[in-house]
Amino acid sequence: MSALDDLTNPELESDAELAYEGALRPKTLKEFVGQTKVRGQLELLLKAASMQNRTPDHILLAGPPGLGKTTLAMIVAQESAQPLRMSSGPAIQHAGDLAAVLSSLIPGEVLFIDEIHRMARSAEEMLYLAMEDYRIDIMVGKGAGATSVPLELSPFTLVGATTRSGLLPNPLRDRFGFTAHLEFYDTSELEQVLRRAAALLGLEIEREALAEIATRSRGTPRIANRLLRRVRDYALVHGTGPTLAAVRAALELYDVDALGLDRLDREVMTTILTRFSGGPVGLNTLAVSVGEEAETIEAVVEPFLVRIGLITRTPRGRVATRTAWDHFGIERSQDGSLFDDL
């Protein structure tokens, strides 16, 4: 079987993609690129727990998608030499769901709950007691004859991940012994991420090409790795090698511009600039105009646009900045909004 057959065989391609994802995840804190402060804090927390022969404190990882929260949870389990149990907030919609998970944990196990802010309220309240006293109360029976039966739990470490830390109730947030706020990566850090990924893929790529991908990756390692895969595919199909020209051609094909804006980003921006004369425009009105959910605009699109200075949020709505008008080359109408100091 030829190398081309390997790439076009669906079963082998699926295995290759799974191997790719697993290979790119760092296994230790030393391998993890970026988030220097968070890595130092986690290293101290884990070493102190090891020296005292106890389970590490519960950890909350907060930050935008794609910055490494799941990877850090895996590293916590690896560095603690403990097994990892993975779940997610949307999967825990009843207290019984959480009770089943907690009661099956072995001593020292690390429980990772992704999007923890989306758990059901009844499960959150059960988690309070479990995190503090390693105990849960299970109701047996119904009505006046119902009784509460305490169930002791093995000591465990909860690692919660959230992209919306403001939605976590204070009683839950306060029970985490350590909260890490993950920040977007700068270009040099993303170049390190891409260099490591290229080496694992056996891909020889020019430094200028890596820098080009890094500048278009929105400060997010997950996006950087995904774009590297698309560049690899483009170079393979066209037989050009992963040169700077190939990178630019591949990213143009996939609608990623020089700032890292994708199709939805540009649609949102052009809607604000042309249909609403630069704003202000409300979130719900904007979402309807582009045919997307308001939550998608607010959680996925808007943070990046605000961070790179294309829009700003005001009490009246979203407003385009001077940089946005210049980047899209659209002439501002007489009544168009413009923040001259941005």
Score class of each variant (00 low, 15 high):
207 R>P: 08
35 Q>P: 15
266 R>C: 05
284 N>I: 10
136 I>P: 00
65 P>W: 07
285 T>W: 01
130 A>Y: 00
246 A>N: 02
143 G>R: 08
29 L>S: 15
63 G>S: 13
242 P>F: 14
127 L>R: 02
258 A>H: 06
131 M>D: 03
113 I>M: 06
290 V>L: 13
82 Q>S: 04
68 G>K: 10
306 V>M: 12
271 T>M: 10
338 L>E: 14
128 Y>F: 15
170 N>F: 11
136 I>Q: 00
53 N>F: 13
329 G>M: 00
97 D>S: 06
293 E>M: 07
255 D>T: 11
133 D>E: 15
274 T>L: 11
128 Y>T: 11
314 T>V: 01
106 I>P: 00
257 D>C: 07
285 T>L: 04
282 G>F: 03
315 P>V: 06
65 P>L: 08
136 I>V: 03
331 E>H: 04
51 M>C: 13
324 A>I: 03
284 N>V: 09
95 A>Y: 07
154 S>G: 01
219 G>F: 00
3 A>P: 03
149 V>N: 12
99 A>Q: 14
65 P>D: 03
182 L>A: 09
194 L>C: 06
162 T>K: 07
256 V>N: 09
339 F>I: 15
41 Q>W: 08
6 D>W: 10
123 A>T: 08
327 H>N: 01
121 R>P: 08
256 V>T: 06
174 D>F: 11
160 G>D: 01
3 A>R: 14
251 L>P: 09
